[in-house]
Nucleic acid binder design. Structure first.
Lengths: 207, 207
DNA sequence: AAAACTATTTTTGTATACATTTTTATTAAT
DNA sequence: ATTAATAAAAATGTATACAAAAATAGTTTT
């Protein structure tokens, strides 16, 4: 597996020290590669929001905080609805089949959080693909991949899994019935719901 | 100067080959550093949208295209208005002074495009800073920095400079008069205007 | 005792060398 | 002649070695 992925897993599993700079030499030993690919991974994780700069040099694992979660879901709501409305009329039968496949995968047990996040994104992405707006899609993808950092809460204490899956199913039905407006409103609520649930939970956690 | 910045300048000045993969060895010779910092620069430019992957290896300078420009400005309009509305009530006198300083800088002659883009962003950023939403700000910053790639048109053939500066001035006046709604509408129009102008121009160019 | 400077150590950044992968050119086969 | 297979080359990725920068510890000064 890619070093960058391994680091993500380890961040999610809290197996890397928080609050102190990550040392390239240590990671190099831990993952059994030289410092060059470690440096590559750290810099790309930094630009993806998984790590933050530490003073003049080095990076740190940032604390999860509700403002970030709120921002991510606010942006997702705005941009994904935009993208979805651009795609709506062009969503094909094959897209829906694909989407259902990802949904089924997501119901399996023993998936890593990173993979769950990937599947969740693939589901949404399938609905947006038809818009053929690569730039908008790339940004939305970035937001989804950042949100993965918070997935531990949604699949853990928040027990959001079942409700989320039901909503995904319903969204597909609305698409099939060609009711664009209803689908759009539903998607927005789906995202906003998840955001509010997560944000409120994080707020309570820090009080 | 940083290698990454130099490459950006050279892309804007069309001094690097388009449509063919950029070779690390050549860039290494050109900028007088080893391949390691070149690789770093290429990978970060790729994640910033200045370069795109070329097949299984290597990167290329992408063509400018109107869909990308439209996407960037659509996103900017949505997200910057959101950020601005969060910031509005907290914008300080010092912020406005700073903003006017950047505006003055922007009026000087013989600035590089990259620097103009930086100043334009710094102006907008000054108005959003008070929102204290780092995540949202980081994404918006990314969008602005990508839009720099299109700045050559706006300062060149489109002659947008004067009108844009006037709008910036007017925006500051609206902020000072505490008219949040008017300011918000004006900002949205300011961004959408720039977007439409640029997009239409690019569409014509490719027809 | 606190602050400022200096020396030492640690850590990151860059160059060079080597390994692996990808691309291109060449040869063989249909 | 076109395609497939193979060999050569060129290019990227990674390891190690070294240089520069940052952080730390120790010393001096106020």
């Amino acid at each position: 597996m890619d070093v960058s992925q391994s680091i993500k897993e380890d961040i999610l599993k809290n197996q890397l020290p928080r609050g102190v700079p990550l040392r390239q030499a240590i990671l190099s030993a831990r993952y059994g590669v030289s410092r060059i690919p470690i440096r590559d991974a750290l810099s790309s994780l930094k630009s993806e929001g998984w790590l933050v700069p530490n003073g003049k040099a080095g990076v740190m694992i940032p604390d999860l905080n509700w403002t970030e979660a709120e921002d991510l879901y606010l942006m997702r709501a705005e941009l994904e609805c935009l993208l979805f409305s651009m795609a709506f009329d062009y969503i094909s039968k094959e897209d829906l089949i694909k989407a259902r496949y990802f949904l089924a995968e997501l119901n399996k047990e023993n998936l890593t959080l990173v993979y769950k996040g990937e599947l969740n994104w693939l589901f949404h992405h399938t609905l947006y693909r038809a818009a053929e707006r690569p730039t908008l899609q790339r940004v939305v993808e970035g937001l989804n991949k950042q949100a993965v950092r918070y997935l531990g809460f949604q699949y853990g204490p928040l027990g959001y899994k079942v409700r989320s899956q039901d909503q995904h199913e319903e969204l597909l039905l609305l698409i099939e019935s060609k009711d664009k407006n209803a689908a759009l409103i539903f998607l927005r609520q789906h995202i906003e719901n998840a955001g509010i649930l997560l944000t409120e939970f994080l707020k309570k956690l820090n009080s």
